[in-house]
Design a protein around this nucleic acid. Structure first.
Lengths: 333, 333
DNA sequence: CGGCCGAATGTAAACGGTTGCAGGAGCTTC
DNA sequence: GAAGCTCCTGCAACCGTTTACATTCGGCCG
């Protein structure tokens, strides 16, 4: 059931069938009718590979992420896929597993399949690889890297705004001793959050003891370990802000395991608002990162660049919001 | 940089380049050298779409799942992708979002991209669609459906064995009043677990009050609601088994919200062993479903069917195991 | 030295679409 | 009635491979 079969059944040339299928040129209503009937009867659908070969457009978009098992990503991937399918496009997903060198394989896979654009939603990256894509005119969109250029767009997250909200919320509950557990310091986006925390404290005229700043790893065990250490201090913080939700959940675990209570003894605030956070005991107060918006914007910017030939990349700012649940409360006297 | 460029640079015909790239026929060592050098210099890699057009093999495998946000799936998807990439194949992921009618779109996407095989890891399905794939000779692998046929394989999970282990574990801790919160009853795999629970109780000569059997929805809120109801009974169970981990986590939430303790007052056992379970307070005792094994076997069975032309599908049995953590304990007097 | 053989390489026809260009049909206009 | 215009439609080249078949080449044997 290829285009030739359909053409024969409809008594027209393959060019006419192609025009009916794609709507690329006027076809007489009567002819169109016949072609459509033939398509119906044969159950014909075009071969995308042949189409790609002819037009150079694959209708596939690449999505590179760090790790699908990190709860931050599934929603992002799902939304990206949903929007892509709504636009009649396909998605190619690749995991780097946090290894910068795996990026090579990912980019290679994208090139081999001739993607029409790539969303790079990881922190790891390699300028050489970016150039490989750029040189071929493939649109790119990044998450959180300053770069913007020809066909290269960027999504910026307002970490500072979210952290300001969280600190404001905590101070309004009379918290003065606020600790922070960061992500891995070699991660740019983790450093931004760390800086934003210090700035926000300063603005509130609060001091921050170095004992109250710990490094985590953006995973459960990192938060847990950091908090276990912190609980050995003579003077404990009354609230802890974490660089992401998994860290916050690890922190809550350590607090509860030590026989203390959240939020009665120590309040905890996370960052990301992964689904899991609302299921914790107590449900976690956290700064929401709108993953659906990120995914949607990532796709549509690539799609626009590929279709309308928008050459100048742009920066899109994504705002965060504070979701208040039950892991934060007023300071006990 | 297509095959013609390479051929020109190496001073050979495109057929020779193709033979070097694919190793499909003998090429003189000296010639091969020249071709490889040309490939190196030009950074050439073959166009997969042209290749697919010529050979009929796309080297793409489809993976249909219910919902990427259900924590059961990310690990499955990740493993499937890893194994596929190791074999030089690509993966096409599609979500049904639990809607049987979305299967149409998923299967259509698979057909359009000419996948070499499809793993259908959802419960929803439509025999008509299966036939559409089968008629074209596309290998299929299912999770948990009795069907096996020409190029159709099946992965069976030993639910009964896992549930027997769990009930054995609970009775050895002196539990006699054991409750069960099922999944949605219209889901075959949920019914199997339900039946297995009843059988296991009977084998231990335990009676089960109808009050102790509730229907959940395989989500957090279903477990929570079912347990809130159950806690109104005059005589409470000493242990609850859930049809999956999310349900179990909802159950623990309801118990703790009611001021009771897990496992001191009520023990809880889950099913699946999603990553989250080990992070709960207390960490959840659960029946582990080996998702990596399922994914690996799903891919390799498709790959074998596509490459070696294995026509007879087979059934693969996957065993479960009990992971004992801290949500289960001895019955208090 | 001629014929034969096998190894190495080239030629050209698919694969299934898209699309620029040409041409025919039907109609208006002078 | 011829010229010119529009609207449809078909022809054929092209996209980048694979692969069956043809061809060339060198060596070996009788």
């Amino acid at each position: 059931m290829n285009i030739r079969e359909v053409a024969k059944k409809a008594g027209v040339s393959i060019a006419t069938v192609s025009r009916v299928v794609n709507g690329t040129a006027r076809v007489h209503a009567r002819t169109e009718q016949r072609v459509r009937a033939a398509i119906e009867r044969t159950g014909y659908y075009p071969n995308t590979h042949a189409r790609t070969l002819g037009t150079g457009k694959s209708h596939i978009y690449g999505l590179i992420i760090s790790d699908l098992e990190n709860p931050f990503f599934p929603e992002l991937v799902k939304c990206f896929e949903r929007v892509a399918v709504e636009h009649g496009q396909e998605v190619l997903i690749a995991n780097t597993d946090y290894h910068p060198e795996r990026m090579h394989v990912c980019v290679r896979r994208m090139l081999e399949r001739k993607v029409d654009g790539v969303a790079i939603m990881t922190s790891e990256m390699d300028p050489e690889l970016i150039r490989m894509l750029s040189r071929r005119g493939i649109p790119i969109v990044f998450l959180d890297t300053g770069l913007v250029g020809r066909k290269v767009s960027n999504i910026c997250i307002d970490y500072r705004g979210g952290i300001d909200l969280a600190i404001g919320h905590l101070t309004s509950l009379d918290h003065r001793r606020i600790a922070f557990v960061s992500g891995p310091v070699n991660l740019a986006s983790a450093r931004i959050r760390h800086d934003a925390f210090l700035t926000a404290l300063r603005r509130k005229k609060l001091k921050c003891s170095p004992d109250f700043i710990r490094e985590g790893n953006h995973r459960f065990d990192g938060g847990q370990a950091a908090m276990i250490e912190m609980l050995k201090l003579r003077v404990l913080p009354t609230a802890v802000l974490a660089s992401n939700d998994l860290t916050a959940i690890g922190i809550m675990g350590a607090i509860q395991a030590a026989g203390l209570r959240v939020p009665d003894d120590i309040s905890v605030v996370g960052f990301d608002d992964i689904a899991l956070s609302s299921f914790m005991q107590p449900p976690l107060t956290t700064i929401r990162l709108p993953r659906a918006e990120i995914a949607e914007w990532a796709f549509t910017s690539l799609y626009a660049a590929s279709h309308r030939g928008d050459n100048q990349g742009i920066t899109h700012m994504v705002t965060t919001e504070l979701v208040i649940r039950q892991s934060t409360g007023k300071v006990r006297r």
